[in-house]
Amino acid sequence: MPAKVLIVDDEANIVISLEFLMEQAGYAVAIARNGDEAIEKIESFRPDLVLLDVMLPGVNGFDILQRVRQQPEHRGMAIIMLTAKGREVEVTKGLALGADAYITKPFSTRDLLAEVRRHLNANHETFTD
């Protein structure tokens, strides 16, 4: 069974590119375009990894991150923050709230894929062990 990736971003074209990349890498993909949708999809789709944009309409990325990390049932879920804001403060905040990685836009597709693979493999290892 392929690993499941949830893409959360409000920019339609960025979503299309991420969707293409994830599907090409063989993952099952779901999409959320705002905070509320993201929370709902996390519950229903139960992804292994979330690509999470920070600047979202409604509930923002940091709020979602915080919420997921407070729920024990999502303990194994990897979360990669994706945002245009590349300031040090933001990176620190994201990591402090429990993000697994931080990628700034514009990103290199190869780096992104490598990062996604790394986290999914790590998770699978912990599961199989």
Partner: peptide, 10 residues
């Protein structure tokens, strides 16, 4: 950065 992200990704 937003439009640049799409451009670079595609």
């Amino acid at each position: 950065r937003t439009p640049l992200t799409s451009i670079r990704a595609f």
